[in-house]
Design a protein around this nucleic acid. Structure first.
Length: 572
RNA sequence: GGACCUGUGGUGCAGUUUGGAGUGCACGCCGGCCUGUCAAGCCGGAGGUCGCGGGUUCAAAUCCCGUCAGGUCCGCCA
């Protein structure tokens, strides 16, 4: 049907009789003797010259036959990859007419999100979206190639799985053959891949779709894709090396540039220096610790377990309304307030709190933050965790840049805590999941001080986005029992929830560890996109709807009945 | 569950602060002209429930209340 792709034509084809197919990007008529038709396919646009008039409109699907020729002197178009040449003496065959598009198929315009998604098949014609989807395919191919080369075996696991309470809210699938019972869609293949280790697969990976019924964000969709992997007889460093190799290969496949070794820091260090477990290392603005400066202070606002500070270089001129906005933001993030100090010459401070400060505190604040004249110091006093995370968020919002803007700064965050706070009944909550191996040095604290126990869990972070996480798993029944007890899970509950897993472990479980890379996020960053919707062919809106298909939609009563279901009326 | 932003011909926006005739800009669409354009150009034209509902007012795109949709975020995401 065609001999060449539009965007591939260049001077080397001059003189060739060719036929290209695609969509009409633009038509320019110059009377009855000359018309230009720009034809677009996934490779680009080529200008076709018709000696007469041509009855086509934008987005018509056409096949154009013509002769490749140099453009006349002075009419080349440097903005077009094919701008040196054109197709001359063209015959245009309309393969399919088209209505005017709901919005221009053009990277220069950005229509409303709902309109783009409703006409996603048009939206995806835009060069930007074509590039993103093809970049995604490149990344997936490189990831698979790396895993294969490292001796991992791709295994598919079920989408119809069993409910295992804990963790993310699950999507339920009613059973037709067992009325009143349900499958759930996996929030990840976590348990399946551990079973594969018991099964002796040794090294498993999968490009796996994961489904979580939680509220959507710019970096979160109901369904998302992970490069999921697990290996036997390995430790943490082996997993980090394997994942680094795969991600490095994918990034190099896209950028063509080598990836430097991935940095590493502990979770505690990340929290203390950057106020987050996913630090963006592209810029400084590290948090300062003023806890010692204000220990035993008379300033009520600073009488807290921790006092942390953030320096905004040259921020002394920040308007009062902007400062008030940051204060509101800090409160929304859980702080009791936000103190600010404009630094003047000679360490003078301009702040509503200044008159309450002792001289030593004033000097200590300047010294500990390293702030100079013209700078602004933001201070939060609170529990250590809160003080750090609030300023960590402000750090990114004040000083940060779009995630896809280079350079790419990867970092492993290791030694996460095993438990992350306590629930309403005072029981520790698993920070990663209940099968995560405690740090060997902290095993003795499991009963006496569980919240101080570190785990062998780790995250891969890129430019402030969590790219994935993993852990060394528990393979010994005695340790698993101690962790379950720390979580307040009785033997009976453990048997009811995870009996198939604990049963499998009694069959001989190898030491194993694994990881999962968030492919959507990785691709988005590499594509320079701030939102993973831009790298997913058919995503949902923030309210979980698909404007194109109308999903979710009610089922016909008969369909419901066949599933043994009856829908409640919507709440009034 | 909560906070904030947005909603105006097919698309993107201005108009909303300080109420006064659906006023304006760019693109697109339809018709005409045009032999080297490329975001073509020139002339003419069509196209509107100002998201929806209610309220205030002599008068509402504009003010108030509610609601829906899209977005960003908090909670949530083992």
């Amino acid at each position: 049907m065609r001999t060449h792709l539009c965007g591939r034509l260049d001077a080397s084809h001059v003189g060739s009789q060719v036929r290209v197919c695609g969509w009409v990007a633009k038509r320019r008529e110059h009377g009855e003797h000359l018309a230009f038709v720009d034809v677009r396919d996934h490779t680009g646009i080529v200008q076709c010259v018709v000696p007469g008039t041509v009855d086509v409109r934008s987005e018509y699907v056409v096949a154009v036959s013509g002769t490749v020729r140099h453009r006349p002197e002075g009419t080349t178009n440097p903005d077009l990859a094919t701008g040196e040449v054109e197709l001359g003496d063209c015959e245009v065959e309309v393969l399919s007419a088209a209505e005017p598009p709901p919005f221009a198929v053009d990277d220069r315009v950005d229509a409303d999100e709902a309109v783009r998604l409703r006409y996603r098949y048009v939206d995806l014609r835009r060069p930007r979206m074509q590039r993103n989807l093809r970049l995604r395919a490149t990344v997936l191919g490189a990831l698979r190639a790396s895993m294969d080369a490292q001796g991992f075996c791709e295994v598919e696991t079920p989408l119809l799985w069993a409910p295992t309470p804990e963790g993310a809210r699950e999507f339920a699938v009613p059973s037709r053959l067992h009325h009143g019972s349900f499958y759930v869609l996996p929030q990840s293949p976590q348990l399946a891949k551990q079973l594969l280790m018991v099964a002796g697969m040794d090294r498993y990976y999968q490009v796996a779709r994961c489904l979580r019924d939680e509220d959507l964000r710019a970096d979160r969709q109901f369904e998302f894709t992970q490069l999921d992997l697990e290996a036997s007889f390995v430790g943490q460093d082996d997993v980090l090396d394997a994942v680094s190799a795969a991600v490095t290969r994918a990034v190099e496949a896209v950028t063509g540039e080598p990836v430097p070794p991935v940095a590493r820091m502990t979770w505690a260090e990340a929290l203390d220096r950057f106020g987050t477990d996913k630090p963006d290392l592209r810029f400084g603005m590290e948090l300062a610790d003023l806890s010692d400066v204000f220990a035993g202070t008379g300033v009520k606002a600073f009488a807290a377990p921790a006092v942390k500070a953030l320096v905004v270089a040259g921020g002394a001129q920040t308007s009062r309304s902007r400062l008030d906005g940051w204060t509101d933001r800090a409160k929304a993030l859980g702080a009791k307030g936000l103190a600010w100090f404009r630094v003047g010459d000679g360490g003078a401070l301009d702040s509503p709190l200044d008159r309450f400060l002792a001289d030593g505190e004033r000097a200590g604040l300047v010294a500990a933050t390293g702030a100079g004249p013209g700078d602004l110091v933001l201070v939060v006093a609170d529990e250590h965790r809160t003080a750090c995370t609030v300023l960590g968020t402000l750090r990114v919002e004040i000083g940060g840049r779009p995630v896809g803007e280079g350079p790419f700064r990867y970092v492993w965050v290791v030694d996460f805590p095993l438990f992350d706070g306590v629930d309403d009944e005072g029981r520790p909550q698993a920070a990663h999941h209940p099968f995560t191996m405690p740090h060997p040095d902290d095993l003795g604290l499991l009963e006496s001080d569980p919240l101080a126990v570190r785990s062998q869990a780790y995250d891969l972070v890129l430019n402030g986005w969590e790219l994935g996480s993993g852990s060394v798993r528990i393979h010994r029944a005695d340790i698993q029992g101690r962790v379950f007890r720390a979580l307040g899970i009785t033997d009976e509950e453990a048997e009811a929830r995870f009996g198939f897993l604990t049963g499998a472990f009694r069959a001989g479980a190898p030491p194993h560890a694994g990881f999962a890379v968030g492919v959507d996020r990785l691709v988005a960053i590499l594509a320079g996109e701030e939102n993973i919707r831009e790298v997913i062919a058919f995503p949902k809106t923030q309210s979980g709807a698909d404007p194109m298909t109308g999903a979710p939609r009610p089922l016909a009563p008969g369909t419901l009945a066949a599933l043994g279901l009856r829908a409640l009326p919507p709440p009034s």
